[in-house]
C-alpha cells in the first residue's frame, strides 16, 4: 500500500495526551532519526496537511476540535495514531472525560457527518519508540510490511 507518491505533510494534533508521545514525535524530527529524509514535514495548518497525526485519548473537550481538524484535511487523507491512547483510549478507555479512542471518533463521524473511516495507521506503545513511529510511517509509505496480525488460538 503506497497512498502517496509525493512527500507527506503532517499536522500534529495532541488531543489531551500526557505529552510522552509528543516528545517521541519531536525525537523523530531530530537529526538523529530525521524523518524528513522521507519527505515528512510538520505543518502549521491541517489545510496544508496530507496526514493528521493524533496523540492523546480524544477528550470530550478536544472532540469538536479534532473533528474540525479532521474535516479540514483534504482528501486523500491518512490518520496516524501514535500511542495506545488514540487507538483505544489507553488506560483512560472508560473514563467519563474521554471518548475512548479513534474507533469511537469514527463512529461519531459516521453517524453525525456520514464520513467513512479514513486510512489509519495505528502505532501501539506507551509511548512508542521513535523507531516504532518511523516504522508506522514507513508502513503508510509502503516501505516496510506489517508485522502484527490477528490470531485466534483454541486450546484444550
Amino acid at each position: 500500500m503506497s497512498l502517496y507518491k509525493r512527500s507527506i505533510w503532517v499536522f500534529h494534533l495532541n488531543t489531551g495526551g500526557c505529552n510522552a508521545c509528543d516528545i517521541e514525535i519531536l525525537d523523530v524530527l531530530t537529526p538523529y532519526h530525521d524523518v524528513e529524509r522521507f519527505g515528512i514535514k510538520l505543518v502549521a495548518s491541517p489545510r496544508h496537511a496530507d496526514a493528521l497525526l493524533i496523540s492523546g485519548p480524544v477528550t470530550r473537550e478536544a472532540l469538536p476540535k479534532v473533528i474540525d481538524a479532521l474535516l479540514a484535511v483534504p482528501e486523500p487523507k491518512v490518520v496516524i495514531a501514535v500511542g495506545s491512547c488514540p487507538i483505544s483510549g489507553g488506560i483512560w478507555y472508560d473514563t467519563y472525560s474521554t471518548i475512548g479512542g479513534l474507533n469511537e471518533l469514527y463512529r461519531i463521524l459516521k453517524e453525525e457527518y456520514g464520513i467513512n473511516e479514513p486510512l489509519t495507521v495505528r502505532i501501539p506503545g506507551c509511548p512508542p519508540r521513535p523507531e516504532a513511529i518511523i516504522h508506522g510511517v514507513a508502513l503508510a509509505l509502503g516501505i516496510v510490511k506489517q508485522k502484527v496480525k490477528f490470531n485466534h488460538i483454541v486450546i484444550g
Binding site: 487507538i87 489509519t120 495507521v121 502505532i123 512508542p128 523507531e131 516504532a132 516496510v144 508485522k147
Partner: peptide, 11 residues
C-alpha cells in the same frame, strides 16, 4: 516494537 498496523483487528 515494530507493531504498527493498518487496521484494528490485527492488534
Amino acid at each position: 516494537f515494530e507493531l504498527a498496523s493498518l487496521n484494528d483487528r490485527d492488534l
